Simulated scan of single mutants.
Amino acid sequence: MNPALGPGQLAALRQAAEWLCQLNSGDARQSDHHAWQQWHDASPDNAWAWQQAERLQGRMTGQALPVARRVLDVSAEHRRASRRRVIKAGMVLLGGTALSLGGYQQRTTLPWLADYRSGVGEQLKLNLGNGTTVRLNTDTALDVSDTPTGTRLKLRQGEIMVQVPLGQQCQAQTTHGRVDTQACRFSLRVLETSTRLNVHQQQARVTLPSGQSLVASQQQRCEFDRERFSPLLALPAGSDAWDQGLIIANGLRLDQLLAELSRYRPGWLHCGPDVAGLRVSGTFRLDDTEQALRAITSALPVRVQARTRYWVTVVRA
């Protein structure tokens, strides 16, 4: 059995899927292909992910042409195809790659097999039968099941906000551990190598695969992986603002704010190293990241440099 894919490989596969969709969209320009080449050459993981796509496509079609070449052909022949169909094809392609390479553990966490999914920039609210409510943040995949003792959630990727009513129990699982709560409001976010728990009301117990456990109380945060916990910290102000569709920044570094905004839009959004440490304060709507960028450029000595609509850099003005 092959080992599970690493975080870098998984991220590269997701990015390769996005590039495949973008180049197949029917309106790709030469600058898009140039940007794709830069992404491809930027890291060994990126080149590996694209190579896996080529190999899988070759096995599926019996052709030896590179994917990049076929992408251009498809774009010319099917410019009226819907973007949704293209996205689905890209995810199936790279989903098959991950299934063939990742082993059992990876197969059980693939996001496209989840009961519920939210897209990039989308939020989804679930009202469960026992009164528990769950909000899926952007790009989130979640399984939901009922047990004799309450609700069981399996967060495959992304972030959720959970409100458990009085008299009910909830168990939330990620690849890093299990969270058990009663009558609690909490959020859970899967990061690259760990999970973050924010407890907004009452308390929650985290248990690692080894059996180690820790209780986080109201207004506390902790991160954990499969082996250890981080120290408990106080929740920063506005940590649950995303539940209302907002980001509240209070002297936040520009690179950190852009990293959060990038979760709500397709493609890549980053800034130059010379402006990364500039501080930003304000309230920004998650459903209008373009307006957020305009607000940032009006408050700081920076400007937006858009190579394509999917490749945006904030640089010094």
Score class of each variant (00 low, 15 high):
V315W: 06
Q219N: 09
N2Y: 09
G6S: 14
A16L: 09
A317H: 13
A16E: 06
S210E: 11
T147D: 07
P301T: 12
G103V: 06
R29F: 00
R265T: 01
K125Y: 01
Q57E: 05
L293F: 04
G121W: 02
W36K: 01
Q9A: 08
L246V: 00
K88S: 06
Y104K: 10
S118V: 04
R117A: 04
T283K: 09
L293T: 03
G167T: 11
T283A: 10
V206P: 05
A141P: 03
R189S: 02
Q57W: 15
P7N: 12
S25Q: 12
R117I: 00
G251V: 09
L113N: 14
I87V: 07
L20Y: 11
Q244V: 00
A259V: 04
Q163Y: 06
A89Q: 15
M161S: 07
G8H: 14
L246Y: 12
A249L: 08
L72S: 07
P236R: 15
A276F: 04
V179E: 11
L278R: 14
L166G: 00
A172I: 11
D274N: 12
H34C: 00
A172M: 14
R156C: 00
Q30K: 13
T61D: 09
S75R: 15
L269Q: 01
T289V: 11
G158R: 15
S25E: 10
L188M: 12
F224A: 00
R285W: 02
D225L: 10
D27Q: 12
L258E: 02
L235Q: 03
T297Q: 15
E290N: 10
V71C: 05
C271R: 01
A183F: 14
W19L: 02
A4W: 02
I87P: 00
I247G: 01
S194C: 11
S187C: 08
R279S: 07
S210F: 07
S43Q: 14
M91G: 00
D139I: 00
F186Y: 15
R178Q: 11
D27S: 08
L300D: 07
A47M: 03
D73M: 14
P236G: 02
K154G: 00
Y104H: 09
N46V: 08
P236W: 14
N250R: 15
A295Q: 15
S43G: 02
Q212M: 08
V144C: 06
T313C: 05
D45S: 08
T174H: 12
Q169S: 11
A317Y: 09
R307F: 10
G102L: 05
W311T: 05
C271T: 03
P266M: 04
D27A: 06
Q212I: 06
Q218N: 04
A317S: 13
S100P: 01
L93E: 03
S31L: 13
G102A: 07
